Simulated assay, not measured.
Amino acid sequence: MAGRLEGKVIGITGGASGMGLAFGEAFAREGASVLIVDLNEDAAKKAVEGIVEAGGSAAYAVANVVDRTQVVAAVQTAVTEFGRLDVWFNNAGYNAPMQFLDITEENFRRVLDINALGVLIGTQEAAKQMVAQGQGGKIINTSSIAGREGFPTFAPYSASKAAVISLTQSGAKALAKHEITVNAFAPGVVATPLWDKLDEDLYAIGDIQSRGTALNEYEKGIIRGRMAHPKDIVGTALFLASEDSDYMTAQCIMIDGGMTLV
């Protein structure tokens, strides 16, 4: 029985760890050829090896999402390895918490560059390839509950993820004539390795009183009663990458266990 993504070629940034890796593995299990795009070459190689060992098809490209030349090269790697590009997942992200009154221009620009400019560049370059192929495609963007609700120690991150939602809407309108859909999803508190560093950062700025408590503090108020794990988000990613979402565009799906009500 063919998988839901049989024959599709999917590129995913930040694909070597956390949610990105879980998505890549799931896409491969459903029959897609997956391009893991990441700054960490060793982690990207390991991710590809794991997918191939499990019977899937994968390759990798090392790229900084704010460097257009590197993103273009990553897109071309997908075409070289697999012949085409059907889905591009702008998943790479960055956060560097600071108390609101301490936020610097450098902090703000770095977070916005990676989380918002990186989405713009990835969307543009992937879409150019899809337009050239002439058969449409899908762009999927990782936003966040922070894109719907501001957090005092995450102000640049919140601004960047709100920008992701706006870029999703703008891209959807611009690319509809090419049969390219653009959608996003917004996770809440997800237990990934990124939270280890985030925990240290939040402790350093006094947002939490004890190390190792950030996840528990931030999961309070979730209606489902617990934080998410990458496997909880995989189903949404598969839906957005598959034909099941063909009529959906310009949307941002909240998948946060009920943490944010909008």
Rank of each mutant, 00 (worst) to 15 (best):
R226F: 02
I140M: 11
S170W: 05
A228L: 13
G150L: 10
Y218N: 14
N183R: 10
Q135M: 09
A214I: 01
P187D: 02
S160M: 09
P152G: 02
A172R: 00
A159F: 00
R224H: 07
L198I: 13
E217M: 03
A204I: 02
K220S: 04
Q135E: 11
I165P: 07
T168A: 12
Q209T: 04
G134Y: 10
S166K: 10
R224W: 09
D199R: 10
L198T: 14
I139A: 03
T142P: 07
G134K: 05
G137V: 01
I165Q: 12
L194M: 15
P187T: 08
D201K: 06
G188A: 08
A228Y: 02
K177D: 13
R211Q: 11
I140C: 01
T181M: 10
A159V: 15
R226Q: 08
A146K: 00
V164M: 11
L215A: 10
L202M: 14
E219V: 05
R148M: 08
A155S: 15
G150R: 05
T153Y: 09
A186H: 03
A146Q: 03
I180V: 02
I145F: 05
T192W: 01
L198D: 13
D199V: 01
S158K: 06
G221K: 06
N216I: 02
D201F: 03
G225V: 02
D207C: 00
T192Y: 05
A162G: 15
I140E: 13
S158W: 05
A191F: 02
P152H: 08
S210K: 15
W195T: 12
G150Q: 04
G150Y: 04
I145S: 06
T142E: 03
S144F: 08
E200I: 09
T153A: 15
A162T: 11
I223N: 05
Q169S: 09
K220D: 05
E200S: 15
G225F: 06
G137C: 01
D207E: 15
A176V: 08
M227A: 14
A191E: 12
A204M: 05
L215T: 11
G147F: 06
I222Y: 05
L202W: 02
N141W: 02
L194K: 07
Y157A: 13
V190F: 08
E179S: 11
G212K: 10
E179R: 15
G225D: 10
E149W: 10
G147E: 06
A176D: 01
T213Q: 13
S170E: 05
K161M: 04
